[in-house]
Design a protein around this nucleic acid. Structure first.
Length: 113
DNA sequence: TTTCTGACAACAA
DNA sequence: ATTGTTGCCAGAA
């Protein structure tokens, strides 16, 4: 009820905003949170449109491999890597170091510790 | 109007 | 194990 069904994008934004600083998440995880595990693509598409909004840490969203697939869509080529690095996340060759440990997955962790 | 593509992911062969 | 196909939603041609 609080969230209209039509605004799938907005739901994506809400989840992305919940990603803690210094953590990362994946398109698939977000899609699963929205109840549509097969909508991972739409998540990426939503983030693509998120540029006109503010407060959306799209740089914390990567693919399931921990690869910065969306880096090329940022304002600057190294913008995404710089933002992640600023949060203490190491990125080598577009790959997040210790990705498993940094992954924010409410389904898997359920409770933050 | 229909068709295709897109910052992905899961399944089938 | 790798490769190819399908699904999802929204926007562009």
């Amino acid at each position: 009820m609080s969230v209209p069904q039509g605004d799938f994008f907005e739901k994506v934004y809400q989840v992305v905003k919940r990603i803690p600083e210094g953590r990362v998440s994946t398109y698939g995880v977000i899609a699963r949170l929205l109840g549509s595990p097969q909508s991972a693509r739409v998540v990426g598409w939503a983030l693509n449109a998120s540029h006109k909004f503010s407060g959306i840490p799209a740089h914390r969203v990567v693919n399931r491999n921990g690869l910065l697939t969306g880096k090329h869509h940022f304002k600057d080529f190294d913008e995404m890597r710089r933002l992640l690095n600023n949060e203490g996340i190491q990125v080598i060759d577009d790959q997040i170091v210790d990705f498993e440990n940094l992954l924010w997955d409410p389904f898997k962790e359920s409770n933050e510790y």
